[in-house]
Amino acid sequence: MAGNRFNANQDHGVGVGLRIPHYDHIFREKPAVDWFEIISENYMVDGGRPLAMLDRIMEQYRVVQHGVSMYFGSAQAADLEHLRKLKRLVKRTGTPWLSDHLCWGSVDGTYSHDLLPLPYTWEAVEKTAARIREVQDFLEIPVAVENVSSYAAYTQSEMTEWEFLNEVVERADCGILLDVNNIYVSSVNHDFDPMEYVNAVPAERVAQMHIAGHSKYEKYILDTHDHPVIDPVWALYARAVDRCGPTPTLLEWDDRIPSFDEVWAEARKAERYLVAAQEVGAR
């Protein structure tokens, strides 16, 4: 699988998120998973079982780090201690690239532990891009930013979400972790055409893709990662792969986690799209 400079030209295919309930199965059965994505924060500890398990996984699999608390869009300076710990983990895992979310979540050192959406303003573009550059320089590996699911829009926004994403990644010169489920969730919550979003993404910057399931409520959709991927999301994924070419793809399943086999079977549905894209590329 051809890579690009935002995923260190790696050839990662389909992976799944590494989750504790699956440890035993993975160690016992050694399933032929191409790679695992780990949530960085779960392993940014000083010792003990989390790191021991991670080391065991790394004996047999490639891992890629995905963070949830970098908050590129928080208006204040980055937490240096956080960055130092993250870099220590980066050195341990040898992750070829690292991703986190295009969102904010902390103010004055207080953390929400949520992925709060940014207002799509020029001020946010400038500040967020500057922070991404700072993090990328510090970590010395490619960084990809992920579009988040959102449930609120801001009165101050001056552009669409995809315009905002494009402006940020251009200024930061970083990659994109394109989450097609998040695009779908936000398109329902904010009444836009998700295909227009996918078509607007700079394909050459897409380092990785996420697929996942969500929960539907009467008035909005929530990105709960507790269901299989629905057909409209597969359609977005197909279009994204069509535009970007074969791209490292990961299934997220974080709640009501089923057996490993079920999760892996769901993830592998992505393979046919990747193979098709590869064949097109080979012609």
Binding site: R19, I20, Y23, I39, E41, N42, R49, P50, H66, V68, S69, H101, L115, E146, V148, S149, Y151, S215, Y217, L222, D223, T224, H225, D226, E252, D254, D255
Partner: peptide, 12 residues
Amino acid sequence: MDKEKHACKGQN
């Protein structure tokens, strides 16, 4: 004590 507190899922 195995816990995964950090995920990027929504909570409702």
